[in-house]
Design a protein around this nucleic acid. Sequence first.
DNA 1: GAGCACTGC
Length: 787
Amino acid sequence: MAAPQASTSADAARPSKRSKMDGTASSTPEASIANPYLVHMSEEELAASAAATNGSIADDHPLAGLIPRKVTGAEARKVMEGDVNPFSVVPKPYSNEYKKILAKRKELPVYAQMDDFYQLFNQNQIMVMIGETGSGKTTQIPQFVAYSDLPNTQKTKGPDGVLAPRMIACTQPRRVAAMSVAKRVAEEMDVSLGKEVGYTIRFEDATDRRTTFLKYMTDGMLLREAMHDHNLERYSCIILDEAHERTLATDILMGLLKEVVQRRSDLKLIVMSATLDALKFQKYFNDAPLLKVPGRTFPVETFYTPEPEPDYLEAAIRTVIMIHQAEDAGDILVFLTGEEEIEDACRKIKAEADDLAATNPDLCGPLKVVPLYSSLPPAQQQRIFDAAPAPLTPNGPPGRKVVVSTNIAETSLTIDGIVYVVDPGFSKQKVYNPRIRVESLLVTPISKASAQQRAGRAGRTRPGKCFRLYTEKDWANELIEQSYPEILRSNLANTVLELKKLGISNLVTFDYMDPPAPETIMRALELLNYLAAFDDEGNLTPLGEIMADFPLDPQLAKMLIVSPEFKCSNEILTIAAMLSVPNVFVRPNSQKQQADAAQAEFAHPDGDHLTLLNVYHAYKTNCRDNKTAADWCWQNYLSHRALMQADNVRSQLQRLMERHNLDLVSTSFEDKRYYTNIQMAIACGFFMQVAHRAGGNKKAFQTIKDNQVVSPHPSSTLDHAAEFVIYHEFVLTTRNFIRTITEVKPEWLYDFAPAYFDPNNMDGEVKRIMATLKARKDKPAAPSKRR
DNA sequence: GAGCACTGC
């Protein structure tokens, strides 16, 4: 095909079908500045492009021809230093602010390697980049790509017929990162956030289909898009950032993109990681070349304990006090494993430090102790940014701040001014046991990579020190190199459903970077088959197709999709949303009784799902505006944050219901079937999570199939001896608990899942009950029940 | 009669 021609006139070869934006552009004075980077498609190319379908892009596809322009570092710098901003929708001169920021960008380590970058980028479809903290890779690399992609940043008619730029995507594991980096990069490029440069996260899409060419997004969001566009046709380059974190979404995207680049020769892929396992990434991506960019942090001196510490909590507290007495000014960051431990440590550190400052004011300054974990209200989280206290006397010993934090300070939050890190070497990690189908949290030794990340937190503003509360020998011999990726530690029911929706036919031979245990995949397939999302051949059923569209666990999705048949989709929407957000009940240590009394006001005797429904209804009835909502929640020991989130989730789920033409209906509240219908819909999704009362004790249950002995969680509002309950969660702590439980009838269970409850697969009393139900159902004259 | 590490859709 003919190469597209560059044109110096802003309008010459444009097609007659014009977007409004273009019309505006040609009438503004700025538009008279010729944009030498515009590339136009001929009428023939446009026609061919419009005719193209969503299939793979062949070498002779008109869009493929737009890619080969290879930019050198010198060319990119010339544009960067030029007078006209070629990225702006309306070409315009750069602002003074742009030039100021540009001077700063040039100091970033990654800037010095621009030529190396283009050399590798131009010659390879896939490349791996290592950039340590402070290298500038997240902000600069996508911009570098934008220069080389410049012809495409201008609107071209895509395969779907819409006039839009082909995009560069840069994925982030976290929402805040996607948002804040996009904002920063829009400033650096002197364009508008949400127009040329934007971001997409759940609940918020700050992009413009017609003008956005660089998009930061969460990895989960790109995965969602891939479910509807298997070739990611809207993108010319995909950058997977923070790949070393190995989130489930990143891992799936890597496997998927490894296939997509084979189908689309015009798609580029950059995998960016902070240090280490680069070799593993290179190998996985067919020996892709590597670019290494140095970081810009200060040295951190590391200390180990000479002997193993029997009690890391005690040792951590002792170390903080030691630093406070003996080290120069500078704040301390301590890593612990959970809320309770952190609150405990904060109290003890505070007590000891106050004691010390009182008895020895010449040696010790004041100490401010601040806890940090995710469930802390945002206002209290902000305290980590407070300044350290001033010395008590003008020339007295300096004040100091201690932040006692979970892993949240390892990646998600950075605190400037930290000079000392105390690392006991543990964190809580999710583990999945496919044998008993239970995910639980375990306090586990961290990895070397994690320990290095923690230590690095001490060197952000000046040289620092890291105190590891384990021996150097343990460091060398006991810590694993990398933490296990999430895909090896999770229940994969959701992931397996997503993979099918992504068009992956064989889930076992899929090219995972780290293949999960076959048993984990079998468990997922089994669940999805029982839910009727997969047929017996392992193919997605029409129901499964719809389920995959909902951002929910398969059981929740099933319950929601069948709810119109039980005339309760409005109520199930609420319950699904409430189950998708953190616990709405707040129970402060000092006010447990008041909190329990408040919860009792919403309690429903038949179960916790119905209690959640009550809470939401009360919230909607009593909370007309934000201020009253906050007060009302506070008075009722409810989390306003969680309820707002639930509201948000509910709207999203409702939109999806509407899109799939699923009716939004309710049974009349006066009808005695109002609650029964809801319970039936829940049972229809969760019949694989049922427990049966064991013996005469009203609090003793056994799970069906696994026969695990479990107790209802003490927070449950179910107030009578139910024979069968469905449970939302199995929690393994001091004992086996089932949490969020609701009574169900055995006849529903047998009706909805006769194969699962086949008496031949059951034992004891449940076997007898199911056999009776089966006999009744098999009797030809029996009236047939729904479903 | 209890405990939600952290993300994400």
